[in-house]
Amino acid sequence: MDLILFIVFALIAVVAAINVVVQRHPISSAVSLIAVMGSLAVLYLLLGAEFLAAAQVIVYAGAIMVLFVFVIMLLNAGGETKAGRSFVASLLGVPVLVALLILLTYFTARIYPRQTEVHFGGFRGGTAQAVGRALFTTYLLPFEITSILILIAIVGAIVLARKELE
């Protein structure tokens, strides 16, 4: 059961991720990216990260990607025009990518042989309670710093958007 779930959602994630890269129109890429995030949320659940799975859907798929789609719709820019690309890049691009992929997969499989097996319910420390407790005790300082970061981002976004009105 776990294996079937993993294979199904990993396949969806990989196919959608390829789609993100190859689609010519940004909105198709955005929709594919939402699919990647959704299937990753299911994999998080499989790994026992229930709070993170919900946060992934609410924050990533539900808020950040809506912003992306919103901006794409607002600009209503068409598909990407094929720009003149250097000869070396178009020749070496795909083979280098495939080589990188194979190397990465090889090393992860090599360093982590089948020592740990993942099954649903194998880790129960990912509840909202556990995450919240760690967040407000051990990791309180980083948490406060990220809140300041968010504040800076809000101010920055407003300043950038305001400039256009003048």
Binding site: M1, F6, A13, A17, L97, L104, E117
Partner: peptide, 17 residues
């Protein structure tokens, strides 16, 4: 029916690339 841990890492590597 259990999934090897390395598969998750491999998936992550694929998505990263």
């Amino acid at each position: 029916g259990h999934v090897p841990l390395s598969w998750f890492l491999a998936l992550s590597a694929v998505l990263f690339s």
